[in-house]
């Protein structure tokens, strides 16, 4: 048999046995057997020395082609077997992807924080800044500076806690205290909200808790009008409830604003038809507001002939109860995880 014939036979035999092979280990044995350093090709090529130059060149070329072909057949087979082995391993690794993920359980942010942040972010967007004041206050800032002198009946309406610090030091009953502190410290124009905790001596029930939270707002500038108060609060309500709701301003009385108003919004749940939340009235009482009383301005050193302003105040708990449909204020302070986990 000529060397050429031997090579061709070898190519055919090698290719067949490689293709038939199903095992990576024996595949490697086959590779070594045919194209390894001491494999069949090498053995055949030893016989090249007996050939003439021209023949040697031809056979040598053929041998290289055969070697390359066998190598390629081997590589292709190896890839196929690798893929198959990987496939088998992956199948073996099959898991139940519907089991829960591994994680640290997130905590929960209190609903009052959520409404607090929502309200402040809305007012930031309208150019207000945030100021805080003390919860333990003097009666001057809680009453006198807010146009509520001693013996004013409005003092009765807010059952105030007094303290052992000084006879004039109490727990503030409203965040309006911050109005005067801000006006005393900063010259107008002013555009400030002040969220915070307030205290009233009232029996605990589903609607009342001895402490709760308000957000006070204040704008003092030249030529501030009642219409600007309406515009600002209507925009706020639209953003808070995420939809345009009808509102109405009703006359009311607060010692530190005049004219004063109560702002009702169309009930966002029934859109005015009447439901459980609005007690069938179609309207929800949301907040109190008004033009800052000239006495309050001048008491804080601001000339009411030069400046005017509006103020408003709203109860955080009330808004959170409305927004989340919470029926009892005590939920906020029990800190029951079964409650908190819903937020």
């Amino acid at each position: 048999m000529t060397l050429e014939q031997q090579l061709k036979d070898l190519a055919e035999e090698a290719t067949r046995s490689i293709v038939d092979n199903d095992n990576l280990d024996t595949l490697e044995e086959l590779r070594l057997k045919y194209v390894g350093r001491s494999g069949a090709i090498t053995t055949i090529l030893r016989g090249l020395s007996q050939l003439t130059g021209e023949e040697r060149k031809q056979v040598g070329q053929l041998a290289n082609e055969v070697k390359e072909a066998i190598q390629q057949a081997h590589d292709a087979r190896k890839r196929a077997l690798d893929d198959k082995a990987l496939e088998a391993r992956l199948l073996h690794e099959k898991i139940d992807v519907t089991l829960a993920g591994t994680r640290i359980e997130l905590g929960h942010i209190h609903p009052l924080t959520q409404i607090w942040e929502e309200i402040t972010s809305i007012f930031y967007g309208m150019g207000f800044s945030v100021a805080e004041g003390p919860e333990v206050e003097t009666d001057y800032y809680n009453f006198d500076a807010l146009n509520t002198p001693k013996d004013h009946p409005a003092r009765d309406e807010q059952d105030t806690f007094y303290t052992n610090v000084r006879p004039d030091v109490l727990l503030r009953s409203q965040t309006s205290t911050v109005q005067v502190r801000v006006m005393e410290k900063t010259k107008p124009p002013l555009k400030v909200i002040s969220p915070g905790r307030v205290y009233r001596n009232e029996e605990i029930n589903a609607r009342k808790y001895p402490l709760f939270h308000q957000v006070e707002g204040l704008l003092v500038d030249r030529d501030v009008t009642f219409g600007q108060l309406k515009g600002t609060l209507n925009a706020f309500i639209r953003l808070l409830f995420g939809k345009p709701l009808k509102t109405r301003f009703r006359p009311d009385f607060f010692p530190f604003t005049e004219p004063s108003a109560e702002l009702d919004s169309q009930c966002p749940f029934c859109e005015g038809i009447g439901c459980r939340t609005c007690g069938g009235r179609g309207w929800l009482e949301l907040l109190g507001c008004g033009m800052i009383d000239p006495n309050v301005l001048s008491g804080a050193g601001i000339d009411p002939e030069e400046w005017s302003g509006f103020a408003f105040g709203m109860g955080l708990e009330r808004l959170a109860m409305l927004k989340f449909g919470i029926n009892d204020i005590r939920h906020f302070y029990n800190n029951d995880l079964r409650f908190l986990k819903q937020f």
């Binding site: 124009p189 009642f226 109405r248």
Partner: peptide
């Protein structure tokens, strides 16, 4: 009538701030 008063937005004469 409070509700007959014209509604408007305040003028922007105040420098805005950033939340803490």
């Amino acid at each position: 009538g409070y509700n007959n008063l014209p509604e408007e937005m305040p003028s922007a004469s105040i420098t805005p701030t950033r939340p803490a």
